[in-house]
Amino acid sequence: MKAKVLLSLVLLCGYLAAPTARADDAAPAAPAVPPACELPSYLLTSESRLPKVAEAVKAGKPLEILVIGSRSTTIPASEDASYPARMQAILKDKLPASEVVHVSVEIQSKKTAEEAATTFVKLVEAKRPTLVIWQTGTVDAIRAIDPDDFRGAVTGGVTALQNAGADVVLMNLQYSPRTETMISVPPYLDNMRVVAQEHDIPLFDRFAIMRQWNDQGQFDLFSPSRGPELAKQVHDCLGRALAQFVIDAAHLGPAQQQN
């Protein structure tokens, strides 16, 4: 019992100390980031690299990014405000003016990871992207697909994309507090993390990021509002975070950035 009490205390102290520690190492970059989008830097960095993106930008070649997503990739009737569009705008802003950035979106509505992955070979052949951002997991979680099967499908998809010559970023599920009692999300988050680790590819932790915003009070994700304003703001922040994440993982130093 004593040991347990001690452990609790240690962890509690760690927890209380954590926000200050995080604040210290928060990203000094990007003064233009609106306060609502602020995030601790550990959510925006990855140990894995994006070599092909780095190469393309250094060589001054166009940067073709393909976002493969689902319904949460878009906002109904507000296409331009969705995170892929916002990311394109921010990347154009941050990279040298000569750099051509083009983001295309492929929506795989109501498809599991396995169903989506079957289309990858054709898709990549047609678009020849430098970078594929694959956002998946929600449909699998809703349908309670076996997490092992899910992991197999994500592994298959990632391998297919890599074999086709693209850098890959995985993006996990949204943080959705309203449906927390109805959809079991953790197994899918864990398995995506494992696949990212195994293949040494960056994982954009959308779930942790959105939860951070909700917990810190930047956004109220419990809101039942029917209007698109909240969705637009969240997607704007997601697009900024994603752009920052790609720049960081590709190690695009100040030389390749405008500011």
């Binding site: 929600t138 809703i142 449906t179 009692t181 698109p228 969705a231």
Partner: peptide, 25 residues
């Protein structure tokens, strides 16, 4: 649980979460 999910299904339409509402199917 049925009571809860039915309530949420009819009262919650945030466009941010259209996909997650697939659980109501």
């Amino acid at each position: 649980f049925l009571a809860e999910i039915s309530y949420v299904a009819t009262s919650f339409e945030n466009p941010l979460y259209t996909e997650e509402m697939g659980i109501m199917d």
